[in-house]
Design a protein around this nucleic acid. Sequence first.
DNA 1: CCGCATCCGGGGCGATACTG
DNA 2: CAGTATCGCCCCGGATGCGG
Lengths: 212, 212
Amino acid sequence: MRSYGQYCAIAKSLDLVGDRWTLLIVRELLLSGPRRYTDLRNALPGVATNLLAARLRELEDAGILRSESAPPPVATTLYALTERGAALEPVLRELGRWGVPMMAAGPAADDHFRSHWLSFPVSEFLSDRDPDSPPLAIELRAGEDPVTVEVRDGAVHLEPGPAADPGLVLEASPHVILGLFAGALDLAGARARGLRTRGDAALLGRVRPEAV
Amino acid sequence: MRSYGQYCAIAKSLDLVGDRWTLLIVRELLLSGPRRYTDLRNALPGVATNLLAARLRELEDAGILRSESAPPPVATTLYALTERGAALEPVLRELGRWGVPMMAAGPAADDHFRSHWLSFPVSEFLSDRDPDSPPLAIELRAGEDPVTVEVRDGAVHLEPGPAADPGLVLEASPHVILGLFAGALDLAGARARGLRTRGDAALLGRVRPEAV
DNA sequence: CCGCATCCGGGGCGATACTG
DNA sequence: CAGTATCGCCCCGGATGCGG
């Protein structure tokens, strides 16, 4: 990207990560860990393949990520954030926080969705209100792949993939899941809009008492 | 800007503020308050005038700023952030924090500089270590226009313009001022690199004890 | 199939000129 | 002062090709 030519911390940051797609690539690596080229391409619907390759090279040159050759049986190159790249997490967190209100209207007609994109809203809205209880796993099915909300020791963390032993499974559209987390819907309202649960729905109260 | 088409809080944010120059316009309005078109143009060296006009229109449509007709004697339109626009401050703060290390190398040959761009590094590095002392004003002369660091009641705030009654005046290149604040230089080292002071230099210890 | 490189059309961007 | 108009270029999006 062309430099702004300003001796300003914000402008210097944008010189590196202000390009189109750049911060979304960092988002993927932050949420999902080291990924292959094809995984990134699949997680970023709409990105041109040449552009993705160019961005990865620029980000590597900038020290934000590094490409490492994975050990067998993967035997391919993985792209992983460096410490410097992982330091962008607060930037993405604040961008996510600012963007949450724009999710309330629901997805646009041709919006894509990946389950792990819920991670930022989840950490924004959920918290472990009962840190002394045993660990709890809540599985979310809002897109193609399930994600698991792990609740333990006072912390809430989202992990891609299904839960091994979920105390609760929530299945609904992303919009309804978000409404439930953000407070726009309670359990009854969410059920009326298509939410299906399995397990003890009252367990939701541990992370979102207002919803139960 | 073309939408990313992703039902994700970060992507939705970038749909609105991911365009080139957009966040720098918000930066100016955050740091300097409502500004006229020409002021913005001057504070954003390198921006094309048509592009600035287009961005202002887009930002107004997005509810991030509004144009208000100023009362006499100004008699012109002022651009001011809305509450929604001001809510971008944490995003810029984190971008600034992440960008500070890139300032250590000093400005590039053709970098522009405006004094109030120091605001984010200032709030990052300085703090009022002696809240019970009377208010203190430190005037910085690092660019064309002076800026004032106001220290009172435990808070540090930067305001454009000279100080009415500065307890201390620091005059140096932006690079040296930053080095002094960030800890790369102490007072002696900064003086060796061109720092000139007026007033009681020991007053700097109130906000940066390590430097004295 | 994976990981790109190449090519091409269109639009965003940069620089300057011009106008009310 | 506050923009609009114009033009050239480069970035971006989409498709295809190609070696490993």
